[in-house]
Design a protein around this nucleic acid. Structure first.
Lengths: 165, 165
DNA sequence: ATTTAAGGTCAACCATATTGACTTAATTAG
DNA sequence: CTAATTAAGTCAATATGGTTGACCTTAAAT
């Protein structure tokens, strides 16, 4: 259970504060994905394709298994999405020379261009938000959101530069 | 375009920082919805039902149109989800006496219990995260995430108590 | 009395996910 | 060398949650 009680000295964690967190997550995630979704529609792609394009762009040469581990979906589900991206030549695959069972996935130039178009809208949103909120707020945002992530997955998020060492 | 340049005095907004924001959103949202999803499965409900239960609980007496405006889905899509929740008696409806076309949606006791079970897991996650990150971080988290939301929707998120007046 | 608004419903469709069973090819362990 | 394991792919069936479009009823507003 959550502590809903007040106390005069320590500011309590009230239900209202916690619900605000929940609602911020809902609305922010909805708007955060809205612009990319609109772009994707023009290519007959969906949000699932965006996630694949993003993480392949972020981790060039990633294998299918590693991608599955990030996305937490089934192989069959990834297969349809990845298959279309390869067919449409957004993504290239080549065998890993060290282990030819593994396929190394990379973005083609076309894929890089789409990745940039999609990610730009989200980066622009963060640029505006970080400017509005200020540097200290950015550090707080990172700390809270990192703690929201399950501990075993926190290391997946690359640490940002310490802004004021 | 995003400013990727460095400068010696003002810490620049680097691409890496912005991508970290994007990835924090992805992983945090995924884990944030994971526990409720597991509970919902026991009731043969999905995430869509959770959203309806949450916002009806948060806004007792809300109308269908208002709910559609929050969720940004079609009436037909809401209808299936809401219909099941009414049939399973998680949600009650009664006509608004002032305008009998409008239905006022409220949670039944059963609905309140499920809402609590679902929301508790998310509130617990925020309690832990807020404790780990500290009060100042919480304020920063709120500021950044509020700025991520489209301006016209920011007022939907109830303002939290100022913690240190 | 007509128009508008809130709500509901039917049908078809699509995207994204699931489980389960099975195959192929390549590497690793015995 | 053989057997087991791993990476990847495939086929099939199913579920969820979304979409568009057409149409209807009831109640309120003009």
């Amino acid at each position: 259970m959550v502590d809903l009680k007040s106390s005069p000295d320590t500011p309590p964690l009230r239900e209202e504060d916690l619900r605000q967190g929940i609602e911020l997550m809902f609305y922010a995630y909805r708007d955060f994905t809205g612009e990319p979704d609109a772009i994707l529609e023009q290519y007959s792609l969906g949000r699932a394709h965006h996630r694949v394009i993003y993480f392949v762009g972020r981790n060039p040469g990633i294998s299918v298994t590693e991608l599955l581990d990030i996305l937490r979906i089934t192989k069959q589900s990834l297969s349809r999405v990845l298959g279309k991206l390869i067919e449409d030549e957004f993504i290239n695959q080549r065998a890993n020379p060290a282990d030819r069972r593994r396929k190394q996935l990379t973005l083609s130039d076309k894929g890089k261009a789409l990745e940039h178009a999609l990610t730009s809208t989200q980066m622009d949103r963060f640029v505006r938000a970080y400017r509005e909120a200020g540097d200290d707020a950015v550090e707080g945002f990172r700390r809270v959101l990192t703690s929201i992530i399950n501990p075993e997955d926190r290391a997946r998020v690359r640490p940002a530069t310490i802004r004021r060492p």
